[in-house]
Write a protein that binds this DNA or RNA. Structure first.
Lengths: 272, 272
DNA sequence: CGCGCTATGTGCGTTGTCGGACAGACGACC
DNA sequence: GGTCGTCTGTCCGACAACGCACATAGCGCG
């Protein structure tokens, strides 16, 4: 866990609308589900940190020391089996979510590895502080319960998706999910890394990515992928992409306009 | 949801040690994690019902009307994709758990189908009553949080297992898990049904089950499977069986001697 | 007893992915 | 401008599981 710390904005510019303005440029959409004043009080206890590609926030079975609320970074949750050699991504967390959900359920060890797959910034809070916040701010606890419920549903979806859908569809879905979280049309990722996330061989990624590229849905070279045609990429992905958005909407939708917009677009543009 | 109701024991024989004695024959091991008096008060609000093979307790997206605490029945949690045609078992609930976990997280719809895969009895409580109990009995809420955390970990494990392990190992694991929950050496299940749960073809089950039978680990005929040699069956299963027990232990272990005993036995007898 | 339903067993070619090995190609850095 | 490490592309055979079709066998029921 080698996250470099950035200046603690929250402590430096306490309270008031200026604070809110600054946050909007560094916001976590899940926390935006809180009433603004509660959210600001919560963020005042956080530190803004930089997450680098490949950082491991938690190893399976670790004690949780911090919780994370990504801003423009994204984190993969990996199920690890066979003595840590093999892993499979079972969930993705970006600015719509949080890492360290076990604390929300009163446990302090995590069953999953958390790996930074998209570099960027994230709010971070110490576990004891977080626990106190949960106790003192029922609205926070309720919000995060629901988020854990969403994660649960998305995890189940990922399990079935991995079983039934072919590599190319899954790759397309992964790219869409990552784009949603990174807030950019292109991002750094090698085929090797992708293969690891999807639990497949690098060669399989080469083939699937090559197919998507030849159809001009994406373009890539040496560790960088560009999304060229999002609409058609959504059509190339399995329905699980849209289902994931739906699950989020069902669980937290009343609180997040962002996901609703994504969903509306996906439903409009995509061809099933 | 055609669960036939049995006489409501709880209301008929209220309070006292006699009640406890009767419950021990019809107990849910998860609820046994509560202090006895709290557990008894909780069960007094429950009805003992009969769950028949194939009953669907919840369909995905359904409003949850009841929660279930199985006694000797077991229930599969299924992730449903592609418009309800395809499904995959992502979790199993028996007397060590509960169905309707979404309520614990403050949601009232369930993201998974719940299907009775082992006939038997179960405690049942109406959702509004359950919600009231959660509010009024913090110990209950804490216990069930932890259980949801356990389910979460087991779900992730199942996802990776399904991806990486071969059919025969997964079948062995399924049989062990079912035996743990049914409290019997043999149970009713067809290959067709098994195939559905594991997300594979019936023919693949025929082959895998045939292999296990020829090695005298199990015996079966026309919808009934008998476990002949548990120790060797554990050796034939993937490590995920033991990991599942470990996850339960880590999350709820201090409260459940039962799982600890199973785990000890698995670790002793099994050959990795 | 035999009918019919359902559960189980077998055959075939096909497909998706695997594992390993190696060749080319980009780009950072000296 | 050349070198080297890393990323990407292509080949091979192998195999688990697939889909489909059809054959056999247990068991309840009239």
């Amino acid at each position: 866990m080698s996250a470099q710390e950035l200046p603690n904005m929250a402590r430096q510019i306490r309270g008031g609308s200026m604070l809110t303005a600054r946050y909007s440029a560094a916001s976590n959409r899940l926390l935006d589900g809180l009433p603004p004043r509660k959210r600001d009080r919560f963020l005042a206890e956080c530190t803004l940190v930089d997450l680098a590609l490949g950082n491991i926030l938690y190893e399976r079975g670790d004690l949780i020391r911090h919780v994370y609320f990504p801003v423009d970074s994204s984190v993969s949750m990996l199920a690890v089996i066979d003595r840590d050699r093999t892993a499979l991504e079972v969930g993705m967390v970006g600015s719509e979510g949080m890492c360290g959900h076990a604390l929300v359920l009163g446990s302090d060890v995590t069953p999953l590895r958390a790996l930074v797959q998209g570099a960027g910034t994230s709010w971070r809070m110490k576990a004891p502080t977080f626990r106190r916040q949960l106790e003192n701010v029922p609205a926070l606890h309720h919000l995060l319960w629901r988020y854990v419920g969403v994660l649960f549903g998305q995890l189940a979806q990922a399990a079935a998706c991995t079983r039934f859908h072919v590599v190319e569809q899954r790759l397309a879905r992964w790219l869409l999910m990552t784009q949603d979280r990174s807030r950019a049309d292109s991002f750094e990722v090698t085929q090797e890394f992708l293969a690891f996330m999807l639990g497949i061989r690098r060669v399989s990624v080469t083939i699937a990515a090559g197919s998507l590229q030849s159809r001009r849905l994406i373009r890539y070279r040496r560790g960088r992928i560009v999304i060229l045609n999002r609409g058609r990429l959504e059509a190339a992905a399995c329905s699980c992409y849209r289902t994931d958005l739906q699950i989020y909407q069902d669980g937290l939708g009343a609180r997040s306009k962002f996901q609703r917009a994504l969903l509306a677009r996906a439903t409009k543009e995509g061809t099933p």
